[in-house]
Lab assay of single mutants.
Amino acid sequence: VDYIVEYDYDAQHDDELTIRKGDIIKNVKKLEEEGWLEGELNGKRGMFPDNFVKEIK
Rank of each mutant, 00 (worst) to 15 (best):
E38W: 02
D14K: 14
M47L: 12
Y3D: 01
W36Q: 04
I25D: 00
I19L: 14
I25V: 14
K21Y: 06
F52W: 04
V53Q: 06
K57G: 09
E34M: 14
E40T: 10
D15A: 11
E55G: 06
L31V: 15
F48G: 01
G39R: 00
K54D: 09
K26G: 12
D15V: 06
K57N: 11
N27H: 15
M47V: 10
I4Y: 12
I56Q: 07
I25S: 00
D15P: 08
V1Q: 15
R45E: 05
M47Y: 12
K57H: 15
D15T: 12
Y7H: 15
D10V: 10
D10Y: 14
V1K: 10
L31S: 13
K54R: 12
E38T: 07
G35F: 07
P49E: 04
D14F: 14
F52H: 09
I56E: 07
L17D: 01
D2R: 04
E16D: 06
R45V: 15
G35A: 04
N51K: 11
K57V: 13
E40K: 05
Y9G: 01
L37S: 13
L41W: 05
V1F: 12
G46Y: 00
I24H: 05
H13E: 08
Q12A: 10
M47G: 08
G22S: 05
L31K: 13
R20M: 05
K57Q: 14
V53F: 04
Q12I: 11
K29V: 14
G22M: 03
Q12W: 08
V1I: 12
G39Q: 00
V28G: 13
H13V: 14
E55L: 07
L41Q: 03
E16F: 05
N51Y: 14
K44H: 11
W36E: 01
G39S: 01
E40I: 05
G46Q: 01
D2P: 04
K29S: 15
I24K: 08
K54Y: 02
R20I: 08
I24Y: 08
G43I: 02
D8G: 06
E6K: 09
D15F: 11
I4Q: 14
F48P: 01
F52N: 04
F48Y: 03
E55H: 05
V5F: 02
A11T: 04
N51Q: 13
Q12N: 08
V1N: 15
D2A: 12
W36P: 02
I56W: 00
D50M: 13
G35K: 05
K57L: 08
W36T: 03
D23Q: 14
V53R: 03
R45S: 07
V5I: 04
N51V: 09
I24M: 07
D14Q: 15
Y7Q: 13
G35L: 04
E34W: 09
K54M: 08
K26I: 15
N51F: 06
K54L: 07
N27G: 13
D15H: 11
K26M: 14
I4R: 13
D15K: 13
W36G: 02
I4N: 07
D8R: 02
L31F: 10
D14S: 15
V28F: 01
I4V: 12
I19F: 07
V5Q: 01
E16M: 04
W36L: 05
K44W: 03
D10L: 12
K54G: 04
A11K: 10
I56V: 10
G43S: 12
K29F: 11
K30T: 05
F48W: 02
K44L: 11
K57P: 09
I25H: 00
Q12G: 12
D23I: 04
K26Q: 08
F48V: 13
Y7G: 09
G35I: 03
E32R: 05
K29N: 13
E32F: 14
K44F: 06
K30H: 09
V1P: 14
F52P: 03
L17F: 02
I24T: 11
G39E: 00
